[in-house]
Design a protein around this nucleic acid. Structure first.
Length: 256
DNA sequence: ATGCCGGGTCCTACCCGA
């Protein structure tokens, strides 16, 4: 089972990249983030032609998530359970495929809109942990993958790439990520690569890619039984060298 | 030291990302 995630920074700008990547890599599931379009504008037919069914949680201009699957799947949630009813940000999609719950997320960045924006990020992380706990309590196998906007440790960002006050590294952010690990979830990329940098994002500016000044912010968390099936997990760095790339690369998790 | 890049949109100056 090959499960991938990719923040594409606009699906309209990256449609051909995703098509090529699907043809080359043939994942069972690909979660997309920052599609930056409304649901009706998502190019579902282009991916259907490659054998993938799509489900989309779109939003005008910002955010937006989707899932592409080449096996039948059922959509369980198109928003994070427990958030306010009027929350309109398209950041969460949950499906079930072959008895496994798969969740794709675009976790709030938390650097805009001051402390109110940061509080929204923390509340979002609290609700995500609640959802994970509910699935653990139900003995349901699951993976949560996507753009977490969290650098879990100081190894997960290049020296100088972020100030210590950034919402990606603030202690309250890391506390909440670590809490999900303490619940029994496995950080798949870190489990496969226990030491050293494994970046998944490089800023467009200041030659960040050329200097390998990156961040590890795209993750896959596995429930305990799925963690025992972990074969490999890591970023596809080749994609950052393509013309007009996203600033994130795909992260691929393979389960036996 | 963030807004140098690169998306978005009230089409063009401004918001947002990490």
């Amino acid at each position: 089972m090959k499960i991938a995630t990719w923040n594409v920074n606009s699906i309209r700008q990256r449609e051909s990249h995703v098509q090529r990547w699907l043809e080359t890599n043939q994942p069972d599931v690909l979660f997309l983030q920052e599609i930056k379009c409304e649901t009706a504008a998502f190019p579902a037919l282009a991916f259907h032609a490659l054998g993938y069914n799509a489900d989309v949680v779109g939003q005008k201009s910002y955010n937006g998530v989707a899932v592409l699957g080449r096996k039948p799947f059922t959509v369980i949630h198109r928003g994070l359970p427990g958030l306010a009813e009027d929350d309109a940000q398209a950041r969460y999609i949950e499906i079930e495929m072959d008895g496994v719950t798969m969740i794709g997320i675009y976790l709030p960045n938390g650097n805009s809109r001051g402390e109110e924006g940061y509080a929204y990020k923390l509340a979002w992380m609290d609700r995500l942990a609640d959802r994970a706990q509910a699935l653990l309590d139900a003995d349901q196998d699951f993976v949560i993958t996507g753009d977490f906007n969290v650098c879990p440790t100081d190894v997960d960002f290049a020296p100088g790439a972020l100030p210590s006050t950034d919402a990606l590294v603030r202690p309250e952010t890391r506390d909440r990520y670590r809490r999900m690990l303490w619940m029994g979830l496995t950080d798949a990329v870190r489990a496969v690569h226990p030491q050293g940098p494994v970046y998944t994002f490089w800023d467009y500016q200041a030659g960040a890619w050329q200097r390998d000044s990156g961040l590890r912010i795209d993750h896959a968390l596995l429930s305990p039984v799925l963690a025992e099936r972990l074969v490999s997990a890591g970023p596809d760095r080749n994609e950052r060298d393509q013309p007009q790339p996203s600033d994130h690369v795909p992260v691929v998790t393979i389960l036996a």
